[in-house]
């Protein structure tokens, strides 16, 4: 879609769509109903922006509503209070969802499809022809270095390779925003570091915003331009930090100092920190 902000019905809002922000959360609140009739408040008055082209990490303990925020941005959940804007458009209105990519905590590859078939899956929602799907999927697999494994089935691939296939699947649609829900948390430390490099390289090559949910302070510092720290349930924005350190950051004294600072900030929350 072109940047035509007035094409969308934004009757409820007075503010014009803002395209400097890939994503914007405005006073977002969310409750989930429970089986016993009560409700659980998971998010309260959360506001922050994801500037276009940046990597924003949402850092928080389990139960702080990180994934809920991501699912709202993906349009899978609607906020009870406040608004979520995707590329300047309300998620309750018309959003071109093909401009978003989503990467899950598990690789979530379909076991009956080859690596190539799994990547091509992301192109099958629309009306793209099978030859174009195939060539784009091949191209994307090549970019993550898996050309030789295009025909392999998921069970024949290592954890790192599966993660690359999942990454290729979320990138093959050339999204403007990539939503990532702790995507590397199940990998071993060494593979995770490789995937961090890969992700930062991909981010340099494309005009793309990344929202990266994690509970790992070091991972947030290594990847993010901007860190949004959530408090335990109900999740609120506890602190926001902009990281200007040059890449690669892993093991540098400045990054280590920042990790220590953030850990200290978390320790201040420890009385109600829920793991």
């Amino acid at each position: 879609m072109d940047a035509t902000p007035h094409a969308t019905p934004t009757t409820s809002s007075h503010a014009p769509p803002d395209h400097r922000h890939a994503l914007a959360f405005r006073h977002v609140g969310k409750r989930f109903g429970r089986a016993d009739g009560t409700s659980l408040e998971v998010l309260r008055d959360v506001s922050f922006d994801v500037p276009a082209g940046s990597v924003v990490s949402i850092l928080g303990p389990s139960g702080s509503g990180k994934s809920t925020l991501l699912n709202m941005a993906a349009g899978l959940l609607t906020p009870d209070e406040g608004r979520v804007l995707v590329l300047g458009h309300e998620t309750s209105g018309t959003v071109d969802w093909s401009r978003l990519g989503y990467m899950f905590q598990d690789d979530r590859l379909l076991p009956w499809r080859s690596a190539l078939g799994n990547v091509a899956l992301a192109l099958e929602a629309g009306s793209i022809g099978s030859r174009e799907r195939r060539s784009r999927a091949e191209h994307e697999l090549a970019r993550v270095g898996l050309t030789d494994f295009a025909g392999a089935y998921p069970h024949q691939l290592s954890g790192g390779m599966r993660s690359r296939v999942a990454l290729a699947r979320s990138l093959v649609t050339e999204p403007d925003i990539l939503l990532m829900d702790e995507p590397f948390s199940r990998l071993d430390a060494q593979t995770r570091t490789t995937m961090h490099h890969e992700l930062l390289r991909i981010h340099r090559e494309r005009a793309m915003s990344i929202v990266f949910v994690t509970h790992d302070v070091e991972e947030a510092v290594i990847l993010a331009d901007h860190i949004v720290m959530l408090s335990p349930r109900p999740g609120r924005v506890h602190a926001e930090t902009t990281v200007t350190l040059p890449h690669p950051r892993l093991g540098t004294p400045q990054a280590q100092a920042l990790v220590a600072d953030l850990r200290a900030a978390i320790a201040g929350l420890s009385s109600d920190w829920v793991i």
């Binding site: 993906a74 899978l76 969802w97 093909s98 989503y102 899950f104 598990d106 979530r108 379909l110 899956l121 992301a122 099958e124 929602a125």
Partner: peptide
């Protein structure tokens, strides 16, 4: 989980 994946990919019910 696979159904959720289809949702994020905006698959129609038929797809």
């Amino acid at each position: 989980d696979y159904v959720e994946l289809a949702q994020t990919l905006r698959f129609s019910r038929l797809k």
